[in-house]
Amino acid sequence: MSELSTMKGLEQGRAKFAYEKALVGSGIKKKKEYKAYVRKIPTLIKANGLGETFAFVKAKKVKRAEETDKPGYAYYLIYDQTSQWLKENGLLEPNTDLVKWVVSLDSPTYRAVTNEVLSLFKWLSRFSEGLIEGELENEKQE
């Protein structure tokens, strides 16, 4: 397989994964938070680094998956979805915490993982923009 077709396949894989995950985000109670946070993550990564950004996300996320009505649930999804993508692509080992792993990486691997996460969030942003409408008139700010 040529390098170009491998890159195209990886990009299509990211797009498919991001579409499925943005659909999940569009179905939650705090969907506008999910959309806003997905859009904000790349800026945070570029300004603060991958490790610090996901340490922040981890601190803000709810502790249990069933707390879907809490403001931190959108952060929970983002943390979980990023971990899933990295695991599915053989970068993150199963049962390994994302932040713990990221802060232990050597510099070249850290940069490569940062680029991979930014590429994923490019797709997540695109799909969340398309799938999640802005604030509805009958929704209150929470």
Rank of each mutant, 00 (worst) to 15 (best):
M1P: 00
M1Q: 04
M1A: 06
S2I: 00
S2F: 03
S2M: 04
L4T: 03
S5F: 08
T6C: 01
M7F: 07
K8E: 11
L10C: 01
Q12D: 06
R14F: 10
A15W: 01
K16R: 11
K16E: 11
F17K: 01
A18W: 00
Y19A: 11
Y19G: 09
E20K: 01
E20Q: 07
V24T: 10
V24R: 09
G25F: 00
G25K: 02
G25W: 06
S26K: 07
S26Q: 05
S26L: 04
G27P: 09
G27T: 15
K29A: 10
K29V: 09
K30R: 08
K31W: 12
K32N: 05
E33W: 05
E33S: 04
K35F: 08
K35E: 08
K35Q: 13
A36Y: 04
Y37L: 12
Y37E: 08
V38T: 14
V38F: 01
R39G: 11
N48H: 08
L50A: 04
E52L: 12
T53M: 13
T53C: 13
T53K: 12
V57R: 01
K58E: 14
A59M: 09
A59K: 15
A59L: 10
V62K: 02
K63A: 03
R64W: 07
R64P: 00
A65I: 02
A65M: 02
E67N: 14
E67Q: 15
D69G: 15
K70R: 07
Y73P: 08
Y76W: 03
Y76G: 05
L77E: 02
Y79C: 08
Y79S: 02
Y79W: 12
D80W: 02
D80E: 03
Q81Y: 07
Q81G: 06
T82K: 03
T82I: 03
Q84H: 15
L86Q: 06
E88Q: 12
E88D: 09
E88G: 10
N89Y: 05
L91R: 14
P94H: 00
P94C: 02
P94E: 07
N95I: 03
N95H: 15
N95G: 00
N95W: 07
T96A: 00
T96W: 05
T96L: 07
L98W: 10
L98C: 10
L98F: 04
V99E: 13
V99F: 15
K100P: 00
K100C: 05
W101A: 15
W101H: 15
V102C: 05
L105F: 00
L105Q: 00
S107A: 15
P108E: 08
T109G: 00
Y110Q: 06
Y110A: 05
R111V: 14
A112H: 05
A112V: 00
V113I: 11
N115Y: 10
N115W: 09
E116F: 02
E116M: 08
E116P: 05
V117A: 11
V117D: 06
L118I: 09
S119W: 14
S119T: 13
L120P: 07
F121M: 13
F121I: 11
L124K: 13
R126E: 14
R126Q: 14
R126D: 13
R126K: 15
F127G: 06
F127N: 02
F127W: 12
E129G: 06
E129S: 08
L131R: 10
I132R: 14
G134L: 11
E135F: 06
L136S: 12
L136F: 06
L136E: 12
E137H: 13
N138L: 13
E139P: 09
K140E: 15
Q141P: 14
